[in-house]
Design a protein around this nucleic acid. Structure first.
Lengths: 253, 253
DNA sequence: GACGGATTGTAACCTTTTTCACAAACGCCT
DNA sequence: AGGCGTTTGTGAAAAAGGTTACAATCCGTC
């Protein structure tokens, strides 16, 4: 057991979250152990990749047997530090912010959203789900008690940088940024950007390329490889809407 | 000028969207031309990277001078095919879906959300912003008229795959997927996944790693562990790290 | 308790992406 | 016009990330 104290590739961390999600789903089907080959079959992620990702953090499986599902779950959760409650605060009680506060997936993964802030006095003091919207100017003061180190930034672009500054002042060390802005933060603060527009732009580009007749390169090569799964990566994020899985079976042919 | 009609790295496309955003912001400050070095200074993205990214699509700048800001804007927008209206449909009128429909950034970037679908009969027929929620079973029929090729999938995991099938059936070629599911789609359909939980998990991990070496104690629940704010990095103007709430409203709407 | 089928962990290899480095191109100034 | 500082575009080197291949390990069986 040698917790490989070097830098771990970010893609590995992303996949780790995916594995965790997968294992949790798997657990429902009462599978005792699982092999990396089986993971590949079900997720499309290369088996060796799976093993290598895990190897950054020690040894998890038994040769000839595979990985104990519940144990692996626990250990990945521990690695990602989501085996215990993680406190999160959110700034920006707009549409997106509200949607995030109400998103049950957060709690399911032990992310506990403990406070919501805004600077709109029409909103401050009002309830948002089970929280009360607080004045963003009290962010530092409030977080001194809460001690959250992760924050979600869901404000319009023009306000993003100043809110980020406030967050840093309030002791935040990691920011999930939904604003289409490159934040300037001290070195010790980590930022992850989520950008719908960027994603859509990438899709838009691919779309156009696909239509171009000349190159004939995009569609897919006549390779023998098993190209069943989509090229993009395994997901983990959660969606949210009101399509009850059981009520109206959404046709599939 | 040789539009390098080969495969363009996805990271390049992602950055292209970033550059575009940056240039638009820059435009407000009436900068005529900009050099790659200046881009690096302001965005943190390596200058050579910037130049190489652009080089996939031809020649954009003048040696000794730099890049014309407005021209570069236009050309990147053209590359990403967001220089014209792009029609998008969305399935899943839940919290997230609603937030996306109401997100003004879409229209600003010429993404025109033309229809919203759900399968909840309590919702179908009701208005959502300026649209009416339609029956997801009519997706194909409706899109025959609309001709959208990009779709946003914002439904709960259990429904995701069947909705994706419907989308493909309806002529959709690109899907922005918010559900935590690996979608199986034909080769000609592109999928991009967006995952809050994954992002949070990555942040969570980094957080723990950062704190580990120094304090050795991370489990600390409600520590008022406000490790000294980076004195060296003090943002301009110490007295006011506060939000210029008058100048930049935070609340999204 | 050795044998065989199964599966891990990882070293070696291959691919993709980023960074470096520099000739060629440009504008300005004299 | 020619020299000079600046900046691009791009091959070549480096780094990062992903895949292959296989010795080492394990469990069940005889």
């Amino acid at each position: 057991m040698h917790t490989h104290n070097g830098r771990v590739p970010v893609p590995t961390l992303e996949r780790l979250a995916t594995y965790l999600r997968f294992l949790i789903d798997l657990d429902q089907t009462s599978t005792e152990t699982i092999s990396s080959a089986e993971v590949e079959r079900q997720t499309g992620i290369n088996a060796a990749q799976f093993r290598k990702d895990l190897s950054y953090f020690g040894e998890f499986g038994k040769p000839g047997v595979g990985y104990n599902v519940t144990d692996l779950q626990a250990r990945i959760a521990r690695i990602l530090k989501i085996d215990r409650e993680q406190r999160i605060i959110l700034v920006g009680a707009g549409n997106l912010g509200s949607a995030l506060v109400g998103y049950p997936g957060l709690k399911e993964h032990r992310f506990n959203l403990v406070a919501v802030f805004d600077n709109n006095y029409g909103k401050i003091g009002r309830p948002l789900w089970d929280l009360e919207i607080l004045d963003v100017l009290k962010l530092k003061e409030v977080n001194q008690k809460l001690g959250a180190r992760i924050a979600i930034l869901a404000v319009p672009a023009p306000a993003a940088q100043s809110v980020a500054d406030l967050m840093v002042h309030a002791g935040i060390h990691a920011i999930l940024n939904f604003a289409p802005v490159l934040l300037r933060v001290p070195k010790h603060v980590f930022v992850r950007n989520v950008s719908f527009l960027q994603e859509l732009a990438v899709l838009s580009y691919h779309l156009s390329v696909e239509i171009m007749p000349d190159t004939g390169q995009i569609g897919g090569e006549p390779h023998n490889g098993h190209e069943a799964l989509d090229a993009t990566h395994a997901p983990e994020g959660d969606a949210d809407a009101s399509i009850p899985s059981a009520s109206a079976p959404i046709h599939s042919d």
